[in-house]
């Protein structure tokens, strides 16, 4: 009757991976000054694209690649509309979610009730059986490790590299970045593609590992949690990791407590990611100091070179 043990931590890491991937992609998009509310749509297209590829070829690796391609392909629509046709980002993002949900159910019509090939664990059985460290550190598939590596890479790139500086400059003040000669539209376009690919892999992780099968509408709000997570993390990559594991941890823990018949306020815990995000938003908006500085200043603003 252990409440917290290695299995729980291993579960929460797996459970958090889809939202972590989607959130880290969206974080980069927002850092470049673009608000893409289409995460849910890109995730679900990634979920079905990856699922189809994996089932047809039998290769989970190819499934994840196609998940990324699917998510990125959908984000191209958003990128073209918002960057070249200067459409409203909020409205376009919402439309992208609706479109993604629709097109994925069309694509997936003949793929319900099929089990995909199993995604292998990375480390051999012997290592996974080490107490505590085994399941937590060595008990996952490649994508989990890649997701953590991706957080590290994004954190490093944004904070320490010239590329990161350019992305942040574009997100803080596109006019200044433009005046310095940076191609604002092109940089944002690529960031949006990156965000789409990450969301797509997150979606593929749902359909290939977590559930694993294809069901229409299976993301069931994960994309919105990822969006909340970016705000929760106040646009800091490592905090996104922490937040994802915290949100995933609460979900995994409350299920386990319930299964052990410990009375927990389930409805409240279920809403906790949103509640915590609202609290963070309140803190951000009340404190004009450090926390607020993190929000990209040009977030959601339309850029046109002539203006």
């Amino acid at each position: 009757m252990n409440i917290i043990d290695a299995a729980l931590i291993a579960t929460l890491i797996g459970a958090s991976t889809p939202i972590l991937l989607a959130a880290i992609g969206e974080l980069v998009v927002e850092k470049s000054g673009v608000l893409n509310l289409g995460v849910e749509g890109m995730m679900i297209v990634g979920a079905i694209a990856g699922f189809i590829a994996c089932v047809t070829t039998g290769s989970p690796a190819l499934g994840f690649v196609m998940g990324a391609v699917g998510g990125a392909a959908l984000s191209v629509i958003f990128a073209v509309l918002t960057q070249y046709f200067l459409s409203n980002q909020v409205a376009t993002g919402l439309a992208l979610t609706l479109f993604g949900l629709g097109i994925s159910s069309l694509m997936g019509e003949s793929y319900t009730g099929i089990n995909p090939p199993i995604t292998p664990k990375l480390f051999p059985e012997a290592m996974r059986d080490i107490p505590w460290a085994g399941p937590i550190l060595f008990g996952h598939d490649l994508v989990v490790y890649l997701s953590v590596a991706l957080v590290a890479a994004v954190a490093y790139t944004l904070a320490r590299t010239r590329l990161g500086l350019i992305i942040r400059a574009v997100g803080e003040s596109h006019d200044a970045a433009h005046a310095l000669g940076y191609k604002v539209v092109r940089i944002r376009f690529l960031c949006i593609l990156f965000g789409g690919a990450c969301a797509g892999v997150g979606g593929a992780y749902l359909s290939l590992v977590r559930v694993p099968s294809w069901t229409e509408g299976m993301t069931a709000g994960a994309g919105w949690i990822a969006l909340a997570l970016v705000v929760f993390a106040s646009w800091k990559p490592w905090r996104a990791l922490l937040g994802a594991y915290l949100f995933g941890g609460i979900a995994a823990l409350q299920l386990r407590l319930q299964a052990q018949e410990v009375a927990v306020p389930v409805a409240l815990l279920d809403a906790s990611p949103y509640l915590v995000t609202i609290i963070v938003l309140v803190i951000i908006s009340s404190d004009r100091g450090r926390a607020a500085l993190n929000a990209p200043a040009a977030l959601g603003k339309v850029f046109h070179a002539s203006s």
Partner: peptide, 27 residues
Amino acid sequence: FRVVWAYTWFDPAAEADAARALIAEGA
């Protein structure tokens, strides 16, 4: 009987997790 409330009618990932939590408890 061990009952887990998912607080959703439809969320495949949450439903799968709920099933796994029950299985972990011996169901």
